[in-house]
Design a binder for these strands. Sequence first.
DNA 1: GCCAACGTTGGC
DNA 2: GCCAACGTTGGC
Length: 137
Amino acid sequence: MAYWLVKSEPSVWSWQQQLDKGAAGEAWTGVRNHSAKQHLMRMKVGERAFYYHSNEGKEIVGIAEIIREHYPDPTDPSGKFVCVDLKAVAPLKTPVTLATIKAEPKLAEMALLKQSRLSVQPVTDAEWRLICQMGGV
DNA sequence: GCCAACGTTGGC
DNA sequence: GCCAACGTTGGC
């Protein structure tokens, strides 16, 4: 069971919009980076991902679940990139901010800090558990 | 196949 | 609004 982190600018697609979609979920489209694509292709139905708001907020706000594995991204005219479908599972009681993550030595190795531009990232089991704990989930 | 120029992302 | 990081493009 792998864990993930996906990033979105709230002005483009926010956690609230994801929540409003409910169990039907929504396609996570628009990834145009090959590293991110590799991660998308490794995602399995039932795996979970942190939902991170970049630019505005800069915090992990919720947990989402993969409900459909990778397929061609309908928004990509070249047909080279893929997307998955995600549904919102639960918000964090307390959002975990980037500043908090930076201040926690156990999270210093997170891809979020090391590759800040990567929009889909793997999260280790230990990181997942710690952030859930910090977020009150 | 190298690398400079350029565009985009995202933190500050 | 600035700038660092980094991916992509295109000339050679």
